[in-house]
Design a protein around this nucleic acid. Sequence first.
DNA 1: TCTGGGGTCCTAGGACCC
DNA 2: TCTGGGGTCCTAGGACCC
Length: 395
Amino acid sequence: MNSVIFHIDLDAFYASVEKLDNPKLAGKPVIVGARPGTRGVVSACSYEAREFGVRSAMPISEAHRKCPNGIFLPVRMGRYQEISEQVMKILESLTPDFRQISIDEAFLDLTGTERLYGPPLLLGTHIKQTIREEIGLALSIGIAKSKYLAKLASEFDKPDGLYMIDPGNEEEFLGKLSLKDLWGVGKKTLERLTELNIRSVQGLRQYPLSILRSMLGDGLGAFLYNAVRGDSVEIFSEEIKSHSISNEVTFEQDRKDSDGLKKAILELSHHVMFRLLDEASQSKTVNVKIRYADFTTMNVQVTLRHWISTTEELYARARNLFESKWDGHTPIRLIGVGLSNVTKADITEQPELFTSELDRRKKVEEAVFKIKSKMSGVKLTKASLMNTKEDRYGE
DNA sequence: TCTGGGGTCCTAGGACCC
DNA sequence: TCTGGGGTCCTAGGACCC
């Protein structure tokens, strides 16, 4: 039996939540992201804003030029999270085989549910209707035999779309797409393909696996070879054994004051350590990211022999890494601190780290963090995200 | 145009081991 | 006395995605 996978994608999510909370914004170009005039980008924008050429990830200054009368709003992550949870709860109730992949997207494996729910397109219509009535949001649904194709299908008919790739029509569907529409083909890969004179999905299909692998690398070559044939490519791996936690900050002005930079590293270390404790995890690998004024970016990392257990240690390590890279005078645009190879804390391995101890340390982190952030006067991302009073930039 | 912040995965080279 | 092959861990960089 063919698998029946749904990909659900909420349309212009952040901007749509803003419209939901403020009906006066209906029909207007809403742009959610950084404040115009600052360094930063568009996080999301309404379809009305897209007509002016505004896109997500675009520098906010450019968005402002293109759409000077747009309504520019700050990101209210907490609110989006809330709405997201409501939507996901509804989706999850349809099948245990549910997988959320971002704040506004999920996969549902609805193979063999026809008797229960009816044919896929009817179920799709029903899901859209339910979310519209209960939450008030529009979404796009793609249906296909694999996650990869379902994702392309939802992208194909958006906004407020519903599109199913019928079994057997996979190659035909893919033939309608351009290379840049393929998930996993970004700017660089597109350039590389153009250099090789590959300009379409059909063109890509002409190349044998071995040639693609040697030209694009084993991973990407095999990925694209399978992707354009509609063969299953599993980009959304099922289990993650380790992950990473990081926080970074881009300064409004490039800076080179050692004390200020160290203070930033300390704040970031606090954030990261709090998050590590909050999820009861552990890590031995510290990394520091530095981006210079010219946008060149460097990473340094070190793996210790023991688990990093305090902010003081994380900070000390991060500072050492920073000092090993920075010459002391090149202006810095961004600084980041992270932990990688993060795994769930193993209680048997670290008996002193039982839950109450973890909880206590977490509270300490939180308290110290609060005090420091008040004293330093530094605007912290988390704190500013929680500030829901301000509802509009300017004026 | 002047480029956020949070991630994941891949590649490639070196160290080290058997 | 000029040098294998496989495996794993580590670092650095890069591509991509939301």
